[in-house]
């Protein structure tokens, strides 16, 4: 799915959050959006998800303007504890989006189990989310997002509240999912390392108010990415430095 933002702006009353954002995400790209906290990354994501109408400009998905939540879209939120429904089991949480597909109960369950296995949670289906660790809960949230095979996946700092080890595991899970499913993914993060490690392309937003795109950087790293090797590559270090400079000096950075 191709995602296009044209002169997108977002304001709350007098407060300008985003301004003049032009961005095209081609089909199958994993785009990372980085920016200092409070720069409107989440607002951007909410607008793309159709949860909030744009105050200026347009969002189009495959040429269709976004007015409500687009079909084929899934979102993973940072706050897994709140985004999962604690009164449902893990399996029912994951199977929930399948209801509108008109599948029979048994099919829904089977599908949910299949996807749970894929994210490494086989056997956890009958438990409740709050019985699992944070990392496992976020895996459930990812499974719930993947169960409908979305062609556009939005992730709002999904690993932001996890410890380092868990976070690396989940980054690799995400890369694996992206390789096999080929969905377009917009991944919002404030972690510079993460953005370079995970992304095909990194976009840096300036601090608000009126955030704009200050850096648009393709990420080309040789070979299959892996946590130790890739992060040691000179290319990685260089890209990370460039993104870092853009984030830190974003205020006066030339737009290019």
């Amino acid at each position: 799915m191709t995602l296009r933002l044209d002169a997108l702006g977002q304001r709350y009353g007098d407060h300008l959050v985003l301004h003049g954002i032009d961005l095209t995400v081609p089909d199958g790209q994993l785009l990372c959006v980085v920016g200092p906290s409070g720069c409107g990354k989440s607002t951007l994501l909410r607008t793309v998800a159709g949860l909030q109408p744009a105050s200026e400009g347009t969002v189009t998905v495959d040429g269709t303007p976004v007015t409500g939540v687009p079909d084929q879209l899934a979102v993973v939120f940072q706050d897994y504890g709140r985004s999962l429904f604690p009164w449902l089991t893990v399996r029912d949480n994951v199977a929930l989006p399948l209801r509108r597909r008109g599948l029979a109960r048994a099919e829904r369950r089977a599908e949910a189990e299949r996807i749970l296995e894929r994210v490494g949670l086989d056997g956890a289906g009958c438990r409740h989310p709050w019985q699992l660790s944070g990392g496992m809960q976020q895996r459930v949230a990812i499974a719930r997002a993947l169960v409908c095979r979305p062609s556009l996946l939005l992730m709002d700092e999904p690993f932001g509240s996890l410890d380092a080890q868990t976070r690396e595991d989940l980054e690799d899970l995400l890369l694996e999912v992206h390789r096999t499913d080929g969905a377009t993914i917009v991944f919002v993060t404030h972690d510079i390392d993460e953005s370079v490690y995970v992304g095909d392309r990194v976009v840096v937003l300036s601090p608000g108010p009126g955030s704009r795109v200050v850096l648009d950087l393709p990420v080309q790293l040789p070979g299959k990415r892996d946590q130790i090797g890739t992060r040691g590559l000179p290319e990685f270090v260089e890209l990370r430095a460039e993104v870092g400079r853009a984030v830190r000096g974003a205020q006066g950075y030339p737009t290019g």
């Binding site: 709350y12 009353g13 909410r46 949860l51 909030q52 109408p53």
Partner: peptide
């Protein structure tokens, strides 16, 4: 706190 179900979006 946001507006509620019908009008998601700005707080």
């Amino acid at each position: 706190r946001r507006e509620g179900v019908n009008r998601p979006g700005r707080p």
